[in-house]
Write a protein that binds this DNA or RNA. Structure first.
Lengths: 262, 262
DNA sequence: GGTATCGATATGTCTATACATATTCGCGGT
DNA sequence: ACCGCGAATATGTATAGACATATCGATACC
């Protein structure tokens, strides 16, 4: 029971803490398939004995695994390895300006059109709101080293985000401004493919009929629509990359490369 | 300090546990912007007093928020609201057979080609391996109610997944078989757009030049490549939907609607 | 001015204990 | 055979106390 020997003493630099050892040990057994989905993990009592520690410590390890959705805990019944329902991936969609800058390229931004108006039927449909209210409608283009990177078409609900009325979207892209000024609780991304029509092709400097990747993003705060945006990327030269690591890695100090790669 | 009054007594059905109240309270302040990114959350000591509980209880609430990446805790310095670095979303890509079945439609599957061979240069490039080894190459098509849904082109590394040599991919799609038989630790999805060339258009029963959504997925187990797959969907009729809820919702008993919607 | 050191401090981990609560299981009655 | 009920049990929450550890800041030294 080597794990139990050094309790209370200072740890060597390479041995993680006890609950982390337990968590990693269980995680390893799950990921290698030694404990397949549906398998019942030993009771906390047995794990206490196995690792020579208190129940709280075992419980902490299991709680984190449960929060990460690797296991499921049921009172009286026990703890079970979760059945993977689907492949999932964390899709990180960075602010476009930050993304291009991180790639070491010169970010360019052009405001094409910005208008404040009462929401018409199309606007209300896009925002998913019933009541008429004021909105800001923005069209703009992002570029990297002078090459068109994406075009953006955005609506902001001014009733939900009144500060947007005074923001200067000529100098700062609306996505960047929103990310830094408006907290949100929920977002939905719909990713699809289209072929470029004439205006889109001109704006992106690609051929009419070329494929484009489209992200439609809708953002809410507490059930309230904040903004709806459509981003159109040249489709063959840009990829949206989502990487999923087995849920419990230590967070690196500095992380996250640009996610949309050329 | 009403939160402190009923400690130890049985709770009413509607009041959650103490640490959850604390967690939700802090989460609310963060999401409403009352505590903006970078703001220092009161010390555990102060929170103990505010909520009238022990330090362990406060710590448990904060630990969960830290695991959900809403806050960052630093020894000696304190606990801070995290700066949102980018919009992120959990992209769930279900098994195609399960997905179509969940939509209440009839799943159809056709194996187009299945071959076992020594990995050639193209295969090694796709799998990202240096050594030559045996692979299985599979082409197949998924359909819903008889309408083509996606075409799949897959390589499986037989050295990493020897069981794949005896699997029957004529009756079961390789994605389904792998999901149920092979545990994985890491996956990467690259999403892009293409226009359909002639063979693709014929296979999907769409026009040549129509947009298609492409998912290239690479799956590893402990640094070891397992499989690489390219899925091509008709791009205008299918969307990949990713929804991100602010991290702290209770998990529903039954969840997750189909993610690729028509 | 620059640098090494050290104490203060906030979080991190762990223990032992207690009681709450959900759920299963088996028993006993109908 | 069925149902209701209570006992058993595994997890869930909470406590007080202890010590570990990283790091911020100030002090002392060069």
């Amino acid at each position: 029971m080597s794990l139990a020997t050094d309790r209370g003493k200072p740890q060597a630099a390479d041995t993680p803490t006890l609950y982390k050892q337990i968590r990693l040990d269980i995680e390893r057994r799950i990921l290698t398939g030694e404990w397949p989905p549906g398998h019942r993990i030993p009771f906390e009592h047995q794990l206490m004995t196995r690792y020579g520690c208190s129940r709280m410590t075992v419980s902490k390890a299991l709680s984190e695994l449960a929060q990460a959705d690797l296991i499921e805990r049921r009172r009286r019944a026990g703890t079970f390895v979760r059945r993977p329902k689907f492949l999932s991936a964390v899709l990180t969609i960075p602010d476009i300006r930050a993304e291009i800058t991180a790639l070491g390229r010169v970010y360019g931004y052009q405001l094409i059109k910005s208008a404040r108006r009462a929401a018409n039927a199309v606007d209300r449909e896009r925002l998913g709101v019933r009541k008429t209210g004021k909105v800001v409608a923005i069209s703009c283009r992002h570029s990297a080293d002078g090459v068109p990177f994406a075009i953006e078409d955005r609506l902001i609900d001014l009733d939900a985000v009144p500060e947007a009325a005074t923001a200067d979207f000529a100098s700062e892209p609306p996505g960047t401004w929103l990310l830094h000024h408006v907290p949100w609780t929920e977002a939905e991304h719909a990713i699809s493919a289209i072929v470029a029509d004439d205006p889109t092709a001109r704006a992106l400097d690609i051929a009419t009929g070329a494929p484009c990747l489209v992200i439609d993003r809708h953002t809410w705060r507490s059930e309230r629509t904040l903004t709806a945006v459509r981003l159109v990327y040249p489709g063959e030269s840009h990829k949206l990359v989502a990487r999923f690591k087995g849920s419990l890695e230590e967070r690196p100090r500095q992380s996250s490369p640009a996610q949309i790669m050329q």
